[in-house]
Each structure stands twice: as structure tokens, then as C-alpha cells.
Design a protein around this nucleic acid. Structure first.
Lengths: 208, 208
DNA sequence: AATCATTTCAAATAGGCGTTTGAAACATAG
DNA sequence: CTATGTTTCAAACGCCTATTTGAAATGATT
């Protein structure tokens, strides 16, 4: 499963990433992680101290990969139009969600953390989630101005983020019930463009 | 905790509802459930057979309560306007999500099931989730007509449902990080009205 | 080659889990 | 009261969990 790196610690981290993302902190077992990493049962405690510290490392890794592979600005410049900004954000988040590689770890871990929160949640929210929200905030303020109503901002933020996050939340429905687990690059782009357009229309209607 | 009904089976079911909704099937323990129900550790097996059959009963109960307390049509008549239909749907879903009573069990159980799917997911999707989607479908077709493009329908469905579902998904952020766990009746109504208006604008933009 | 630190390993530890058991308590009907 | 069926109970069962242990193996340094 995990490629045979000579480094046991790295193999453990990679295996832990995949298993924590799939099962969450509680349901993942260190025995399972060690087996996938082809390491001894005691390896986690030797290299990371305990299961919890390994989980922290996994989050750090998952966040770093997601942020560098698909930054939330979507690569679009600051001074672009509203629809294009929305597209940049949606595209980045959706690429993370539909990624089957390491960039997909972040949304999967987040899904687990939302269902069974751990002590890590606070740090995750402050370091990863709130900055993402601020990205959406900037786009909304392009429409409503810098001094726009705080509650309206909050509601629109949720509408935009919610559209993207739903594809993360509903993953088991696609994978287990509908049987359409994977998503092509074109499909991702179509969804991102839809969310950008739909949200632009929403913002316009709210502004009326 | 659980009111002292003379009926042990009912006390077990109520306790199980709350604990399964909070922790999911795997992390909930029968010991914990029996303790809350003030029943013996063997009571679950005696009255329900095993933990899994109890979980089935919990889902049945949670679905029945949610569907009867807050039906997805939101109580609005069939032949009403688009924005009002959207409001009806959003209002019903949000009321479920923010309910601290039995009507809130359904979205909480769903959240758990999405993070750690069980064999029950298939049944839940077919009996509860797909009918809910059809409700949104009807509203969208009021705008695009009966013969509207299937993919556009699917995308808009997700946009509307996603806005509502996000308040379920992000519950731990409100409760544990932001510290604003409860939501007043007025707040719920404001959110529902926002989602209806935002979605109407979105649909209009897509129709262009 | 010998010494030292680092890493791996199988086995053991202590605790939690769902479930089973057989006896005790209780309720009901003859 | 007796007999029968239902419900409750404490204890035990077998399995799985994270972690610890001390020895063995490996690597690096002198």
C-alpha cells in the first residue's frame, strides 16, 4: 500500500493520514496504521509518543498539502471580478474535495472532525477554517462594499461555503449509494462555474 | 436524564436516540445507553436483540418524528411561488437542524452516518434523502420547466440543499468554537428567508 | 573491532467493548 | 397459594484497544 520508504516515521505518517481521513481519530486503530506502514505495533509510540500526537502531525501535514496544492484564492488575482473570485474559491475547495491524493486529506479529516470533534478542532478552526472564510468575505465585499452589514455578510458567506462543503459532506452518498465516486477534471470545473454563477445571482438578489 | 417511564424499552430507545445522535453508531456504547436509561447492561440485548437492531429502531423513530414535525414542503401549498417554496423547504430543514428536541435527531444521525457510514445508509438514502431531493426538484422545475436539463437540475439541487445542510455540518464550529450553539426562532426564520432569496437569485442567474 | 545510541520487535499489561448466562425478582392467571 | 411467563440483574465471556516493556537487532562512532 504505502511505498517502501526506508524511513519508518514517514511511512507511519502517510498510513495514518489515509486511515484517520477514512475513519476519524477514534475509529482508526494504531494496529491498522502500523500494519499499512509495515511497521511494528509499538512504532507509533516510539516515533510520535502516542496516537494523539500522531493525529496532530497528520493534521499539520494535510493542511500544508491542501493549502499549497490548492490555495483558496484559486490562483486568481486580487483585483478580478466577483464571479471570477467566486470561481477561484469554489474551484480550489472542490479540487480538494474530489482529490484522491494527499490534497484530499484535509476535507476528509474535516468531515470526521465535524462528526466527532477532538481537542484539535479549535486549532484547525483558527488556523485553517477562519482564513478560508476571510477569502469569501473579501469577495462578498467587492459586491456590498467594505461597510456592508455584518449579518448579511455572514449569511452570504454560509451560502457560498455551504454549496462547496456539501460535496464533501455528501461523499458517502455518491460513493456508496449512487456509485459515482470519482469526478473528472471537467466535471469539477462545471460544478465550480455553476457555484460561481449561482452565487453571483444570489448576491445580486440580496443586494436588491 | 430520561424521564422515568415505567417502560424500560421506551427509556432505552430515547436514551439511544440521544447518544447515537451525539456519537454515532460506533462510538456510542450500550453501557452508556443503559446507564442513561437507568436499565441493566443486558437490557439492550433483551429488548432489541443487539446494538444494531436498536440503531435501526432509532433511525425509524428519528425519521418519523422529523417528517411529521417538520415536513419538507414546509407547509406551503403546492401552487405557490418559487421563493415561497424555497422558503418552505429551507425553513423545515433548518428547524430540524436547530431543534434541540426529537426533531433534531434526524440531522444529527445523518451527520454521523456521513462520517462513518453503516449498513443503514442505503435505506436512509432511499426512504428519507431522495424524497427530500424531489421536493427541491419540484421547485426548480417551477422555474426551468418540466423538461429542464438534468445536469442543471442536479447542480441547482445541490446549491440549495448545500446551503441548508452546511448549518448541520458546521454545528461543532458553532457549539465548540464560536460558542453560539442555540438559535432563536427569529434567527432561523432570517436564515431561511435568506436562503430562499439567495437561491431565487441563483436560479435566475442560471436561467439567463 | 568495540562501544554506543538508535531502532525494531514479540509479548505482556490494563482497560473497554458487545454479548451471554443463569439465577433472582416480578407480574399475571388458574 | 401455585404455577407460568416476563423482566431484571450481577457476573463472566471473548475480543479488541492503546500503551509499555525489555531484549534483540541495527547503525554509527571511535
Amino acid at each position: 500500500m504505502i511505498e517502501a520508504t526506508p524511513n519508518t516515521k514517514e511511512r507511519l505518517l502517510k498510513a495514518a493520514c489515509r486511515i484517520f481521513a477514512e475513519k476519524g481519530f477514534r475509529d482508526a486503530t494504531v494496529a491498522e496504521i502500523c500494519e499499512m506502514a509495515e511497521a511494528n505495533i509499538a512504532a507509533v509510540n516510539y516515533h510520535f509518543g502516542d496516537k494523539e500526537k500522531l493525529y496532530d502531525e497528520v493534521w499539520r501535514h494535510a493542511f500544508a498539502i491542501a493549502a499549497s496544492t490548492y490555495p483558496v484564492d484559486g490562483g486568481v488575482p486580487e483585483d478580478t471580478g466577483i464571479e471570477e473570485s467566486l470561481y477561484g474559491y469554489a474551484s480550489a475547495i472542490l479540487h480538494r474535495i474530489f482529490s484522491e491524493g494527499e490534497a484530499g486529506l484535509f476535507p476528509r479529516l474535516l468531515n470526521q472532525e465535524m462528526a466527532a470533534p477532538t481537542l484539535a478542532l479549535d486549532k484547525i478552526a483558527k488556523e485553517a477554517l477562519f482564513p478560508q472564510r476571510r477569502q469569501v468575505e473579501k469577495t462578498i465585499k467587492k459586491m456590498f462594499g467594505e461597510a456592508c452589514d455584518e449579518h448579511v455578510l455572514w449569511l452570504c458567506q454560509h451560502s457560498i461555503i455551504g454549496q462547496c462543503a456539501f460535496y464533501n459532506f455528501s461523499r458517502p452518498l455518491r460513493e456508496r449509494v449512487m456509485g459515482c465516486g470519482t469526478m473528472s477534471e471537467e466535471s469539477i470545473d462545471i460544478i465550480a462555474r455553476h457555484i460561481a454563477r449561482f452565487s453571483l445571482g444570489g448576491l445580486k438578489e440580496i443586494q436588491k
